[in-house]
Amino acid sequence: MGLSHCAILGAHPKVDLQSVCDTSAIVLEGFKKHSKFQVFNDYKKMIQDSELDCIVIASPTKFHAEMVDYALENNIHVFCEKPFSLHPEDGRKLAEKAASKGLINQVGYHNRFLGTFNEVKRLIDQDLLGDVYHFLAESYGPVVLKEKGGTWRSEKGQGGGCLYDYASHTIDLIHFILGNTKKVSGTQLKSVFSKHVEDAVYSSLELENNISGQLSVNWSDETHRKMNTQITLLGKKGKIIADATEVKIFLKESNNKLGLEKGWNVRYLTDLTEGVNYYLRGEEYSSQIDHFIECVLNKNQKNKSTFSSALLTDNVISMLLQDQNN
């Protein structure tokens, strides 16, 4: 159901949160007893019985396609959690359907709403580094740290595993900042503790604009307190290292137009982030929901993380799986 999405929507001044749907009896009972929202355990019934303008889908990934399809069929604007769908063919049809119906569609790639990564995109778009010849995109965190237990995230074929859950963010970030992937090679999907899914993803990526680089993602790394995503870009004119909190820029020569000095320049999150009306766990989580709601209210606004762009990430996930099998 997405507890934090629910809280962000519940606090949103322009949203009247009507109903929640989940399959966990204990979660539903909690909402029934302690919240004002209507509670459902069947999403179709929820959509039929409530008059909804928008829906946020945060179910296990294998259900995304049918749920998104049903919502679109009922002319509801959709925010769907990442990754978009398990089968790119489903994703393509859904992206087309949303577009043909003129419905706002967004996928929860929150890195697109982080001040630091937006700054990197701005600098790259202004050609700060000249020819970029290499990137390293990394995400590490402590999700699976021992050989037992597990929820749907550790099951094969349900959208579980580090590739769907963690690497999708990293791939989407590469697409957001640099461009779309053309080819993958040398893919290694490694199981560290999980029996049925991979805990780490390593691969070489080549983009449509011929920039190439590496993907390195591991969710069994407890030296990180929480998920930590970093991108390093090397260009002829310098280098950028960015994560959620800071952007470090090294330049061979100063860039007066962008106000950057020769040598190291550091920009912090505090200077790059706009405040939000309700903060829960990082500005980017509130910002992405704010953006979705703004797009629904003002149809002229271009969405920053559409089904179509998320579909490109799903495609790369398929390419990585195929490359590993080869």
Binding site: L3, C6, A7, I8, L9, G10, A11, S35, F37, Y278
Partner: peptide, 12 residues
């Protein structure tokens, strides 16, 4: 704060 603000948003 993560719990206070979560409960606040959920209206609980």
């Amino acid at each position: 704060n993560v719990i206070t603000d979560l409960l606040l948003g959920l209206g609980m």
